[in-house]
């Protein structure tokens, strides 16, 4: 994927910092919304993203199916990401990569930092599209050693699809969500053979495709089974598990992939003046996706519960963009 212009180009772009809409996050939601806004005639739209290239999570999901609804084709994640970026660029969206928003201020004033320095972006409307991430081991409070080889699916995928690196050879996969299936596909692609898939509940979270997948990939699925201890001071060497009868045993492995249990990436909201639902950790929004400060909107997996696949985020991005267009045109009734 081409790296987008940064450096001087970006410094110049950001210098004129009065935007119609600033979007935080260049994943499917943010890119779809940006493209939609431009198509609807909104002049100055910028997408800010802290990563070095745009596309969000699909960049490192090297397998299909992506793009069925949006582009009427079956694509892999990376080609889907490239397509989204291409559409946004063709529509005239400004993309500022390596640009981290450090705080959300009143009335759409964002503090940012990029390799060129600290700055500020002002926009009439801001769309928060920061997505979600999986819950790490620490928050799950899993007992045991803290050696290398413990990660989430997202990390596994970035290592394999972006860096061609393998974090382990024979991991245990924890969880049976859609993303867990994605973890199995990723392992297969990299020649990693998971030794077991564990699910604490008595049935898989998504029965299709998990039951098929474990059969196809030859990964034994243990239901009603949870990790009670991770062993391996320097690097994982085994996990101790307990099954539904309370019987305990050890599974030899060299890694643990904690999949799913997505949590919204809402730390910017938490540290800001915007209202946050403390239980779900999502920003509080009205039926239009508008936050407690009406210059802010939120969409995509930052709000979705449970998280949705890229196509659904793309749709939400488009819908929210339409609301923002109406709002900017002062058509939206005050609530």
């Amino acid at each position: 994927m081409n790296h987008l212009p940064s450096g001087k180009w970006m410094a110049d772009t950001l210098k004129d910092n009065r935007w119609d809409v600033a979007i935080i996050g260049a994943g499917p939601t943010g890119l779809a919304a940006a493209t939609e806004l431009k198509k609807a005639g909104i002049k100055r739209v910028i997408v800010l993203d802290r990563e070095f290239e745009p596309g969000g999570i699909p960049r490192h999901c090297g397998h299909p199916p992506f793009g069925i609804k949006e582009f009427s084709r079956v694509m892999t994640g990376p080609s889907y990401a490239r397509r989204l970026v291409g559409s946004a660029e063709n529509a005239g969206v400004n993309l500022a990569m390596k640009t981290t928003v450090t705080s959300l201020g009143a009335q759409g004033t964002l503090s940012i930092v990029s390799p060129e320095g600290l700055g500020e972006v002002k926009a009439k409307r801001v769309l928060l599209a920061t997505g979600a991430r999986e819950t790490p081991r620490s928050v799950r409070m899993i007992s045991g050693d803290r050696g290398l080889g413990i990660c989430n699916t997202g990390t596994l995928q970035s290592m394999i699809y972006l860096n061609n690196l393998i974090p382990f050879h024979r991991p245990v996969v924890v969880g049976t969500e859609i993303v867990s299936f994605s973890a199995l596909l990723t392992c297969k692609k990299a020649g990693i053979q998971p030794v077991a898939m564990l699910e604490e509940e008595s049935r898989a979270t998504v029965r299709w495709p998990i039951y098929h997948a474990v059969y196809i990939f030859g990964v034994p699925l243990f239901l009603g089974t949870r990790i009670i201890n991770i062993l391996g001071d320097k690097r994982v060497r085994a996990v101790r598990v307990s099954d539904k009868n309370g019987d305990k045993r050890e599974i030899v492995c060299d890694g643990v992939v904690f999949t799913g249990q997505f949590t919204p990436d809402s730390s910017l909201v938490r540290m800001s003046h915007l209202d946050l639902d403390q239980k779900t950790e999502r920003p509080l929004v009205d039926q239009y996706g508008r936050c407690s400060d009406p210059s802010y909107y939120a969409a995509g997996n930052l709000l979705n519960q449970p998280v949705e696949v890229a196509g659904k985020c793309w749709s939400k991005g488009c819908l929210t963009a339409q609301q923002i267009v109406k709002d900017l045109n002062e058509e939206l009734l005050s609530t």
Binding site: E134, R137, N163, P167
Partner: peptide
């Protein structure tokens, strides 16, 4: 806890650690 940066770190630290992030 490394969700976003572990992959980049694995790349940046290649050959530097006795116990590497990537095997």
């Amino acid at each position: 806890q490394g969700f976003y940066c572990s992959a980049r770190l694995a790349e940046l630290t290649r050959g530097k650690f006795d116990e590497p992030l990537a095997v």
